[in-house]
Design a protein around this nucleic acid. Structure first.
Length: 295
DNA sequence: AGGCAGGTGGCCA
DNA sequence: TGGCCACCTGCC
């Protein structure tokens, strides 16, 4: 018997302070902060996080509409605004960045108006970025989709969320490799053992200052400077985190004359120069550099 | 068709 | 500390 078709709720508005155009929505959902959104026909995106599945599409004047499977609509209605950081005033956070004295930043802000940081579940942010070493976005998406299909709970017909760390602890390294993880399988496997043995390990990051939280995260196998910063920025709302990858290294060398600086020095420069929301600036710089690379 | 890819960890001077 | 290299393997 074929699975019953999913009935999707009516489209409803997602209230954000800042307008989001279709290309900026694409940059938010497919620009490297999350790996669980896919493009459907006609401008619709479908994404999965925690126990939620949602579809998002642009509406008339740079607003957004969402829909969810009928049984999950109430859950999604509750979780979606937090996931999109709807209570944050990104317009004000952006205005506090040093764009007045930084023409390159000003140019990036202008190119992607409404770009925002998602607030993803900490657990799965860690999992996704443990998979991210020397992989491109398409491949990371493929890996985490396989992880979800093979080891995650099915929350709607054919749609699986990512496995929890407790669930991952009972998955062999070999079967992680069969999800295309390669050498990252060991990172995930060993991290799962640690986290499963200490149920509140991640929760204990909550009260810590940025530097200590990062140091703590780096104790996990496979978590270095860059992954720790991504986890804190995208999964814990620590906007002062400034992840430095090869793209950011390139852009900082080129636009800020930092040739020869180490990634760690660049990260420090970024936090000093861009301030409390350095991570938001990073997202704009990253989007800009990606766009240059594509054209 | 083969090199390359959103890093990390371990080993050397 | 600082630099180098192996690690897996699917994709452009």
């Amino acid at each position: 018997m074929p699975p019953a078709p999913t009935v999707w709720s009516d489209w409803q508005p997602l209230a954000l302070q800042e307008p989001v155009s279709p290309p900026v929505l694409a940059e938010i959902l497919d620009g490297g902060q999350t790996f669980r959104w896919n493009r459907l026909p006609e401008g619709v995106w479908q994404g999965v996080w925690a126990g939620c599945v949602a579809r998002i599409k642009p509406s008339g004047s740079d607003g957004l509409l969402w829909s969810a499977p009928d049984g999950l609509a109430a859950t999604v209605a509750d979780a979606l605004p937090a996931y999109f950081g709807a209570s944050l005033r990104f317009d004000r956070l952006v205005d506090d960045l040093p764009w007045r004295s930084d023409p390159h930043l000003a140019q990036c802000l202008k190119a992607f108006p409404g770009l925002r940081l998602l607030r993803q579940p900490l657990e799965e942010t860690l999992l996704c970025f443990l998979c991210s070493s020397t992989k491109q976005i398409v491949q990371i998406k493929q890996m985490v989709e396989l992880l979800a299909q093979h080891h995650g709970r099915e929350i709607a017909p054919g749609i699986h969320c990512l496995p929890t760390w407790a669930e991952l602890a009972s998955v062999s390294e070999e079967s992680l490799r069969s999800c295309l993880l390669g050498f990252r399988a060991r990172y995930v496997y060993q991290t799962a053992l640690i986290l499963a043995a200490n149920g509140d390990w991640l929760a204990k990051l909550d009260g810590l200052p940025y530097g200590e939280a990062k140091e703590r995260l780096r104790e996990l196998p496979g978590v270095g400077e860059k992954v720790a910063d991504c986890v804190l920025l995208f999964g814990a709302g620590r906007f002062e985190a400034f992840p430095v990858d090869v793209w950011i290294t390139k852009t900082m060398e080129l636009r800020y004359a930092l040739e020869g600086w180490t990634p760690q020095q660049i990260a420090h420069f970024g936090r000093m120069h861009f301030g409390a929301c350095a991570g938001l600036a990073q997202q704009y710089l990253f989007a800009w550099e990606r766009a240059q690379g594509r054209s």
